[in-house]
Design a protein around this nucleic acid. Structure first.
Length: 144
DNA sequence: TAGGCCATCTGGTCCT
DNA sequence: AGGACCAGATGGCCTA
């Protein structure tokens, strides 16, 4: 019983951490929206981090252009294919942070990378060197 | 009814 | 030895 109790507490702590992660994800939350599954939460978090990293790189380039002068055109291409996933899906409510991120990079020509064969849940690349999450992969985590 | 997701129990392994 | 972590098994709940 003691061991079981410890294990139960450990799993509860793990779930609490998972809830904390869900709270900061760009995903519609509320009583009417079903909670993201654990696997979806982890995949979404990974893609979200990749997207934020790309956005940061993009911002660095833009700042460099502003203060550096030339090569503005170069910076207009998404630094990371994950940026393509920032295209707003009309049917999905976006987290405010994700909205601001999108508006930040929306000047870039967004390219729609559809991946028909992709898993229903956010398909994550296998390594940092593989292509970034397919378009809308973040939004694919919507649970009906 | 099948499949997905989850909580719980339990045994094994590793670490302090 | 005791605790933490992990993975497999099992059963319940929910949805398409």
């Amino acid at each position: 019983m003691k061991v079981n109790s410890r294990e139960r507490k450990r799993m509860h702590d793990l779930n609490q951490a998972m809830d904390g992660l869900r709270e900061v994800m760009p995903y519609a939350q509320g009583p009417s929206v079903r909670k993201l599954s654990k696997i979806s939460t982890l995949l979404l978090a990974r893609n979200y981090i990749l997207m934020l990293s790309s956005s940061l790189e993009e911002m660095k380039k833009l700042v460099g252009d502003v203060y550096g002068g030339s090569a503005a055109v170069q910076a207009r291409a998404p630094a990371h294919p994950a940026l393509a996933s920032t295209a707003p899906a009309a049917h999905l409510p976006l987290h405010p942070l994700a909205q601001s991120l999108h508006s930040l990079v929306s000047s870039s020509p967004l390219q729609h990378h559809s991946s028909p064969g992709a898993p229903s849940v956010a398909a994550a690349p296998q390594s940092p060197h593989t292509p970034a999450p397919s378009s809308a992969s973040i939004h694919q985590c919507k649970v009906s």
